[in-house]
Each structure stands twice: as structure tokens, then as C-alpha cells.
Write a protein that binds this DNA or RNA. Structure first.
Length: 140
DNA sequence: GCCAACGTTGGC
DNA sequence: GCCAACGTTGGC
């Protein structure tokens, strides 16, 4: 089992839309590093869903339901997609500023390489974000 | 809206 | 094959 994080601009494709439709083809990746990560995804791998540009938080969890195949939206070049299905929305979204304060999460792509849209996570990194996202709103 | 970081392109 | 110029992403 591998763990990943993908970014989406919520005004283009929010997590709510994935929940509504029940499935999506993760199209449009045009970066070789991100594409190679898509190609490494296996059916059943878990994928955190992050809202970029607006929101700036991890909002949900989804799962790889179909491994990579050619991106039908690519007019030229060698690009790939996977299919994702929603698993659940996080009880509490995990904001980027919080992630940046967590020592165990300093190595993740979200922090180290801001422009990468598909990135792997270590299991403990994945679990840490899930833990933050599942914690009930506390104290305040 | 600005700009840092990174990727891509193209001249040489 | 180097590198300057340009384009894009995405946080701030």
C-alpha cells in the first residue's frame, strides 16, 4: 500500500464534486515528475486531496480505483491518468500553515516543492495528516 | 497582484 | 550540452 497527495484548485475541481460524482479521471497532469507518480499508483492506494490556490488545506481522502492509462485529454505527448474514488471527507481540514508547523511533515512535497501536484507520502506522514484531520475541533 | 521556485524552450 | 529567457504554479 502506498500513500499519495494530489492537489486541485477547488474552483476547478473541488473534493465535493468528487464526492458527488463518486469517481473521477485525474486528468490534465503535464509535469513529468507528477506523471511518474501517477504511474506508480496502485489500485487501492490512498490519496489525500488538497485544495490549492484557495482553501490551502487537505480536505479529503480518496482511493486509486484504476491504475494509470493514457490521458485522453492530451493532444500530444506521453501523459497518464488514474481513476480516483472518494473515501471520506476529513472531519477537520488540515491547513497548510498547520502542516508547516509539524516537524514530522517537513519533508513532504507540499512543503518542500510547492509546485508539484502529485506527490508520494510516507506512511507515517500520511497517518499524521489523517490524525490531524480526524481530531475533533478542540479547545476553542 | 507579486514573486519565488521550478520547468521548458531555443539559440549558440 | 549549456544557459538565458520565458512560462507556469501556487503561496503569500
Amino acid at each position: 500500500m502506498n500513500y499519495w497527495l494530489v492537489k486541485s484548485e477547488p474552483f476547478v475541481y473541488p473534493f465535493e464534486e468528487l464526492e458527488r460524482s463518486g469517481r473521477t479521471m485525474w486528468e490534465g497532469v503535464r509535469n513529468y515528475t507528477a506523471r511518474n507518480h501517477l504511474r506508480a499508483m496502485k489500485t487501492g492506494d490512498l490519496v489525500l486531496f488538497y485544495h490549492s490556490r484557495e482553501g490551502l488545506e487537505v480536505v479529503g481522502l480518496c482511493r486509486v480505483d484504476r491504475e494509470h492509462y493514457p490521458d485522453p485529454t492530451a493532444e500530444k505527448g506521453d501523459w497518464s491518468v488514474v481513476d480516483l474514488v472518494p473515501v471520506k471527507r476529513l472531519a477537520k481540514p488540515v491547513p497548510l500553515p498547520i502542516i508547516k508547523t509539524v516537524p514530522e511533515l517537513q519533508q513532504i512535497g507540499l512543503v518542500r516543492m510547492g509546485r508539484l501536484s502529485v506527490m508520494p507520502l510516507q506512511k507515517d506522514e500520511f497517518l499524521k495528516i489523517m490524525e490531524l484531520g480526524e481530531t475533533e475541533a478542540e479547545n476553542n
